[in-house]
Design a protein around this nucleic acid. Structure first.
Lengths: 202, 202
DNA sequence: CTTTGAATAGACCGACCGATCTATCCGTTA
DNA sequence: TAACGGATAGATCGGTCGGTCTATTCAAAG
């Protein structure tokens, strides 16, 4: 049990252990001691490398953000179609949701556990959400959408709703439904390739 | 400070105090002692009336559910139009969201703080969410919607997404956007009053 | 008046929390 | 080889957690 002690730094092992435990059981529910045991790291190393549990939590969120960002970059790299690219976060989440023990959006969960306005958690969550909104807005702008900002906000809403639904229903259905609804939103927001159709009233 | 000791039972004072504190700061973040002080109630009375903190938490969720249910009934009572009735939860939430310190959906938050599958919290959350889904499904069925179940699920998704967005953005905008999107969904799902229009492709 | 049962105050329990500190060990670099 | 810096184990800190217990008060019902 516990992450191997060889070939990784204590800081990395702490981050890995914390990520696994926080994601599975929640942040407040997991004490320092559990993390130290799982990481096979000395108590002082945690405080040497991170300074406090709060800082470790922020580092955990940032590392998750980086992982997601990298996965997103990898997945979009081989996609040319705008719609496909925009739907990537839905598809990646659908995959995550299917892993048993899914507990919803890590970032929103962290916000639930640390509601204090000036807690470092809020900044870390903000970074992630801003990134996602920017990705969508840029993609929509490039594709010539009429209202990139508003459409991106709609996608965010569907994304949040999908994850929230999966968390409570313990099923992948909501996020798939969110994807479907996002597709519908994009059909209206993006300039149609050609496709002769009836005039649509606003 | 603290709820008045007269004219209410200790159980009610405990529920009131717990509701206020849990909603404001989270459940795990609030200890027994804080609740007792706020309720001005003896320690033993808590365990006499509820048995444990977990049970108090469940009672808190059920009481919130009942409050919301009553508010919903009051608001829909004077509405005749199906669309207006269906949008009531969005409107009520928009009002809640504007109160500063809004922390998102109480029930989803509770699920975040108590992820254990067989925790009483999960059952209480399930009761609330089932109720809301049923309300929408029944309303849609009565109105002759083509796919009441699916449309209700879409509304749930928008509702969850709106609250999640408000929680992270500290703004009422997402839930208003959710309302707007719900309106769009309903426009397609409900049989149009008459209104000659072009045939719409699925 | 007496009995009963809930509410009271507050000591107390073991467990755990996040955090600090001492002291030892060990690989790297000077 | 000597010095240094990070990692180690583990005792220890004060504080808080949820929960139990004793003993007392008090109002309503018999």
């Amino acid at each position: 049990m516990g992450t191997s002690r060889n070939s990784t730094t204590p800081a990395q092992r702490l981050l890995d252990a914390a990520s696994s435990l926080f994601a599975r059981e929640g942040i407040r529910a997991v004490g320092i001691e559990r993390i130290l045991a799982e990481a096979d790291v000395a108590r002082a190393s945690l405080y040497q490398n991170f300074g406090s549990k709060d800082a470790l939590v922020a580092a955990y969120l940032d590392s998750q953000h980086e992982t997601i960002r990298a996965g997103h970059a990898r997945a979009t790299a081989r996609l040319a179609d705008t719609v496909d690219r925009i739907l990537v976060p839905f598809d990646l989440s659908a995959r995550d949701v299917k892993r048993r023990g899914f507990r919803g959006c890590l970032f929103l969960n962290a916000l639930t556990e640390f509601p204090e306005t000036r807690h470092p958690v809020r900044a870390a969550v903000g970074r992630h959400r801003t990134w996602l909104a920017d990705v969508w807005r840029d993609e929509l702008t490039t594709a010539g959408a009429a209202d990139p900002e508003g459409t991106a906000a709609q996608l965010e809403l569907l994304y949040d709703g999908g994850l929230a639904g999966c968390k409570s229903a313990r099923s992948a259905e909501p996020v798939l439904r969110a994807r479907q609804m996002a597709l519908e939103v994009l059909r209206r927001a993006l300039p149609q390739p050609d496709q002769a159709g009836c005039s649509r009233t606003a």
